[in-house]
Design a protein around this nucleic acid. Structure first.
Lengths: 201, 201
DNA sequence: GGTAGATTAAGAAATGGTATTGATCTAAAT
DNA sequence: ATTTAGATCAATACCATTTCTTAATCTACC
């Protein structure tokens, strides 16, 4: 039982790394020792706006979001992160600056945390982990580029359809007003968009 | 004279690398050998939509932009790149897929090109170069995150003011309709926004 | 003097803001 | 466990605002 539990604890992480680089069983065992497991209940936060982001979090289970709050008190969802993804406020994590984001669990979630020094250590002891991190960043960069493009050049409906066709289960797992915020729409506009779509069926 | 010319050819590159990692004079000399110098005149292209992006370009001098063309034939500026920046279509460069972007010089420009294999070679022979690349990506990622936020949650005027206060000389060096496209606005809207701002002075 | 780029005006379209309602979830009290 | 009060969320209606579209000048510069 214990073994099973431990194996499942790092299952997504191993999968994520092996998708991107070659790593031996021993290397992965070493790798695991740098992470701190952590559970979050729904609505609990990993990072509060204003604090320094001390962890890079890998998500074994659940969904998190990061959001920023503007002068008028409106929350703007920056990112959703599902199983197998990473989340953090990179600017704060890397530069040690105060975070402008809050990171919060949307469902009960299981995380693997990596501190700044653990990450530096791991990259220097295991160069393949630096390569893994670089590839992650490359992919994130590409994804962001297409998101910027969608944000600037697509209508509300196009943005919603692109998001839901890329991530179909987001509809069931994430409240609609958070999806609206992620797309830069008011909840009312998203509701109207959905109505339009359903009328056309 | 020749020495002076050669030194200036790699000046920005050396500055960019030294800002991010420690590198010896010998290592930088080695580094230089992997790059191919190239000059572009205004409006010449480095990459055409549909081709595979075979180069990662570092800009020693000048300005470039990348843009995508939509179904209606409208150009959408994805990125501007000034002296000391990198530009490419990363998705195409890394995955070997057909590019959806065109990369074009806005001014007469001097570039240093890195092919895919040269980049891989350089990263394996000079691990500090992989670190440099990772830090570049981290910075690009952070910049993109705030751009997404601005794109989704700022008005036309806010986006324009943010851009011009971050890069004041963009106004003089880049045609206004390209700035409008970069901000996801029509040229007419940007013109009206500028008028509003000037009236308030 | 022709052409690309910038400005301006007027009406159209998309999206936002406010308010209301109904449904559902949550948590405390019994 | 059940009930109930409050909170949360989604849908909708009505009006306001922003941005787009089209089209007509205006300008600057090869």
């Amino acid at each position: 039982m214990l073994n099973y539990y431990l194996a499942s604890m790092y299952e997504q992480l191993e999968k994520s790394i092996r998708e991107k680089v070659k790593i031996s069983a021993e290397e992965f065992e070493l790798c695991k020792t740098f992470f701190i497991p952590k559970k979050l209940r729904k609505k609990q936060t990993l990072l509060l706006e204003g604090d320094v982001c001390t962890y890079n979090a890998f998500i074994e289970k659940g969904i998190l979001r990061s959001y920023a709050t503007d002068e008028k008190g409106n929350e703007h969802v920056i990112q959703f992160a599902f199983e197998g993804w990473w989340i953090s406020d990179l600017a704060s994590f890397l530069q040690g600056s105060n975070s402008t984001h809050t990171i919060e669990a949307i469902e009960d979630s299981e995380l693997l945390l990596l501190t700044y020094t653990a990450r530096e250590d791991l990259m220097s002891k295991l160069p393949v982990f630096e390569t893994y991190q670089r590839i992650l960043l490359q992919n994130a960069f590409i994804a962001f580029q297409s998101r910027v493009n969608a944000a600037l050049n697509s209508s509300a409906e196009e943005k919603y359809l692109k998001l839901t066709s890329a991530y179909p289960d987001i509809i069931a797992r994430v409240p609609q007003h958070m999806i609206a915020s992620f797309l830069g729409l008011t909840p009312e506009t998203l509701s109207r968009v959905r109505k339009q779509i359903s009328l056309r069926r």
